[in-house]
Design a protein around this nucleic acid. Structure first.
Lengths: 198, 198
DNA sequence: GGCGACATACATACCCGGTATACATACGCG
DNA sequence: CGCGTATGTATACCGGGTATGTATGTCGCC
């Protein structure tokens, strides 16, 4: 419901039509997250269905201006007052991939980690460059949001890079202890333990 | 496509039916990400539609056993070989919320940050406790994947906590520089600049 | 012995987010 | 003048997430 609440919060500052909301949303996030315009309209339609917004008027040129309702304002307040729950963290493709990779036979996990680190570092460098460029034009007021978003992405990318290092170290440790007390897997076609009592 | 590829990779180890795949997936991720069984069936149906898996047989009790196809095996290999792209990072609700909050009038951003930090730290502590418990039973082989997932979640939570600290510091700095060279916003009901040239 | 609780197993409906595309008008510019 | 670009709305389709319905099997317990 992130999009819905975000648009609702923007409408809380005054009536607007779809295209305006898209522009306002992207301005806040510095263009990192281009919002698909179709999503704006479907989200507005759903919010209207749920009584959070209402059509203020429809101009002759087709512009549909929405305004927030009391229920919508209440919902925005509730959103800002309650934290984003982290007890059921979102599934992450990289984590899933690695979790499956380390337990699957015949996957070159080391290569996987290195390929991913390349990608992650490339992203990190691009973000850092963006941050340096942004610092050149210290537009203190309106750019704060964009700086925060940028730094969030940088923190995340750094955490991912550190995790990849950690994974590599753990794999090396595991390999060292495994090869010393058991024979390595002979080949990659181990299709055993496929019985029904999995 | 994370779920699809994950299930495909599991099927690459041998034929299985839906419920088995759910159990195997959750075992790999240590139960952090309980996979909804419905999603398994819809994902398998789509993978079958796309020729990545095929029904091996349907038992009398209704069990539908799937096996991976050559195209599916190829797809799994491609998945493991290519990195997860990070150039268009996933939208995060917390980041959106804060980006909107700092630019919206009448939002107590400081309270928002503190509430969120509570939640994030609670999550971090729960994860740390899980990790300590997991360390008690060092089942080196099968638990590696679960350890990796856990540590990924911990790294992410730590990054989020550090970012929240960072946000708070930046807000304090911005407030200090703003109050010294401009009058503070008189009230929270600024509904100006809503013209069409947004 | 039977009954309830729980695990196993499959299927469907619904919602939201993400993306592409269609279609129209306005505006600047070579 | 017309072509590209920006503005503007709308719809279709897909995948992921969640809830729910409906069986059967199993195990313990009164």
């Amino acid at each position: 419901m992130a999009i819905r609440h975000g648009l609702l919060a923007l409408l809380d500052e005054g009536p607007a039509y779809g295209y305006q909301l898209k522009a306002a949303f992207e301005e806040r996030t510095g263009g990192t997250w281009p919002l698909n315009i179709g999503q704006v309209y479907t989200t507005l339609a759903r919010a209207e269905r749920d009584g959070l917004v209402a059509q203020l008027d429809v101009a002759a040129d087709g512009r549909v201006v929405y305004e927030i309702t009391d229920a919508g304002r209440h919902e925005v307040a509730r959103w800002f007052a309650s934290p984003v729950r982290r007890d059921a963290p979102a599934r992450d493709e990289l984590t899933i991939k690695l979790a499956v990779a380390v337990t699957a036979p015949g996957v070159d996990v080391k290569a996987l980690v290195q390929t991913q680190r390349s990608e992650t570092m490339r992203t990190l460098q691009a973000l850092t460059r963006l941050k340096i460029d942004a610092a050149d034009r210290p537009d203190p007021e309106s750019d704060t949001a964009w700086h925060l978003v940028l730094e969030r992405l940088i923190f995340d990318a750094e955490a991912e890079a550190r995790w990849l290092d950690h994974v590599e170290a753990r794999l090396l440790r595991a390999a060292a202890s495994t090869t010393s007390d058991r024979t390595p897997a002979p080949d990659g076609t181990d299709r055993a333990n496929q019985g029904s009592a999995r």
